[in-house]
Design a protein around this nucleic acid. Structure first.
Lengths: 351, 351
DNA sequence: CATCGGTTTTGAAACGTGTCAACGGAGTGT
DNA sequence: ACACTCCGTTGACACGTTTCAAAACCGATG
């Protein structure tokens, strides 16, 4: 823990009062020049602006948020900064926040409950104007705590939050799983592996359910047709490592297609297959989820379920703004539809 | 611009004074419990802690940073949040900052000077404890301004900052370009294209210089051997679009290898080649720069120049901490060495 | 000149925290 | 009993901003 001693010779930068003295007006007037310039007469405003320029004064946001009880920053808490899915969401949120004059504090849970908790606490300490949060697991108590602390939020990719505490924006994960499943069934695959992460993550559970329902509606038994491999994390390394398990049973017994809970997993898995000399889609079909940019860059292109990433972030922030502007705001749940993107990694099963 | 009216029924959360009243002590004592617990006697401390728990008090950082003139947040200003290279840097910085109890404010320039300026101003307003910055172009005046405002910083991937204003951590871009160039020359390539971004970016200029020097040292004329394609941005789309230009001249005249200033460009470029039916490395060799995770996931694997991304972020933050802890800190320049990573995208030229 | 309406400026009071000199009390040695 | 030290606690103040009622100003009108 560094103690951050201020440099001895460090003078505090000029404040509003010093500007006032310099311009021969009262601090209140300077504040008005900054916040409601129309209320102050032309010549005075000019004098103040000159003083501001001369001292190169910059407003101290601690002072103002202390006074108002609210800072002008909003938080975005993501599960994993290194996942391109989230960075795209961040872009959307950032653009919308910039329009509202709000700064975005990007925080990373790194899929850890402890870090999520620490970050939410930080937002409360900062008296953040609001937050957009992708919860790390089913336990929403941290979010309820944040709500009690008076920080409004919007949940991302998590449709099951109580409507009296916050909004949510998500994509229909069941529909996504269903679309992927129908695609595979339509191609004649009857033995499929679902490669997934910790079942605590609601999103991937629902994708799994969708996949199962696709089999059920075609009169196939999901329990017999789908085998599941659970991995501790949703990253490429884990995907690559899972190849062994997925290939168990040999060519006659093993799955002919693999659905991954996430593109990151799928990309790693495909790499692992390549290393084994297996060809996609000839030997095995692979389908991902998210449609991250690289999905179109690999060869063969990765068939995947696209989510409107940028729009997701942008909409979440829009909902948050609505909440900030309107005191009697009613929380709502928004649900986007996913879209199946066909590329080269899936093909018909040749028995 | 949303006006962010506070909700009328919103009560301010409990402050240090209310906690004090509740525990029957003075505010000063509560402050001591929070900041120097060893100075306060056991029983009193227990009483205060009970009060804190009961009111679920959370410290208001506006108050404390107003008082101290410094907030406990540091900024990380990256060129482009969607580039996996930067997110890896962010992870490194974050880990080191967490150890120092500092929060990281991740800001995005999106390769725009205006946004960089706005973000630096934001950091000044927040009275950030410090910043790690990857400057968007050669113009360092914004950084000098930040220094005048009293916010210490470390420049990332930019070795040419004056030593009296700040530290820098970078990777030897010339060495990286040289290594890549030697590799290509060693494989017998004598007509090479350098695919790059705006020449305002110092990093890519030095990589270019390194590439040229590799040719010179083998008695090849760089001007005759290397053709350059400048693109407005360093992203996959631009890389894909550049294929036309790179293939101009037909099989007999065109380059036999392409060095990209960046993996993102290289990945897009390879995709474009695939779409044209050209094979890497048989028809053309491709080499990238950065060694982002996906470089190993595509097929063929992308030969590239690796930078110690995580370490870069971590070290920058370490330098920043040193600066915060030690008033008479001497700024320094750290230079990491890049490393050539050989994968399948480069092969010997067969005349 | 007194009064009025409207605009512009002022001054003081809060917001929550950290700091620091001063204070009180308990113990110790003379 | 007194002086002294040590430790724990106090109380007041300062940090920079915003807000708001009140004051000052100005030109016009009766």
């Amino acid at each position: 823990m560094s103690t951050a001693q201020p440099h001895p010779s460090a003078k505090r930068p000029a404040g509003i009062t010093e500007v006032a003295r310099h311009a021969g007006v009262s601090p209140g007037t300077v504040s008005n020049v900054l916040n409601r310039p129309e209320r102050v007469a032309g010549p005075t405003r000019a004098r103040v602006e000159a003083a501001i320029a001369e001292l190169d004064y910059v407003r101290n946001s601690s002072g103002s948020s202390l006074r108002s009880g609210r800072s002008d920053a909003v938080g975005l808490l993501v599960l994993d900064v290194t996942n391109p899915f989230f960075t795209e969401v961040a872009r959307g949120m950032e653009d919308e926040a910039a329009e509202a004059g709000l700064a975005v504090l990007l925080l990373n849970s790194a899929e850890s409950g402890t870090r999520q908790r620490r970050n939410l606490r930080l937002l409360a300490e900062q008296r953040a104007a609001g937050a957009v949060v992708m919860p790390v697991d089913d336990d929403l108590s941290d979010l309820l705590w944040l709500h009690r602390q008076g920080v409004p939020w919007v949940a991302l990719d998590r449709g099951d939050v109580p409507e009296d505490v916050g909004c949510s924006v998500s994509v229909d994960n069941h529909a996504g799983g269903l679309a992927a499943g129908r695609h595979l069934v339509g191609l004649g695959h009857e033995r499929v592996t679902f490669l997934t992460g910790p079942p605590a993550i609601e999103q991937v559970r629902r994708r799994h359910d969708g996949l199962r329902d696709a089999f059920t509606e075609s009169d196939l038994d999901p329990d017999g047709s789908i085998s599941v491999i659970e991995l501790p994390q949703l990253n490429p390394e884990q995907g690559e490592r899972a190849v062994d398990a997925a290939l168990a049973g040999g060519p006659r017994q093993r799955s002919t297609a693999v659905m991954c809970a996430n593109d990151q997993l799928a990309l790693g898995f495909m790499k692992g297959l390549g290393r084994r000399g297996l060809r996609v889609p000839d030997d095995i079909s692979v389908i991902g989820y998210d449609n991250v940019d690289v999905a179109s860059l690999v060869h063969p292109g990765l068939t995947t379920v696209a989510q409107p990433k940028y729009e997701l972030g942008r909409t979440a922030m829009r909902l948050l703004r609505a909440q900030l502007d309107d005191p009697d705001h009613l929380h709502q749940r928004l649900l986007f539809s996913p879209e199946l993107v066909l590329r080269g990694s899936t093909a018909a099963h040749r028995p």
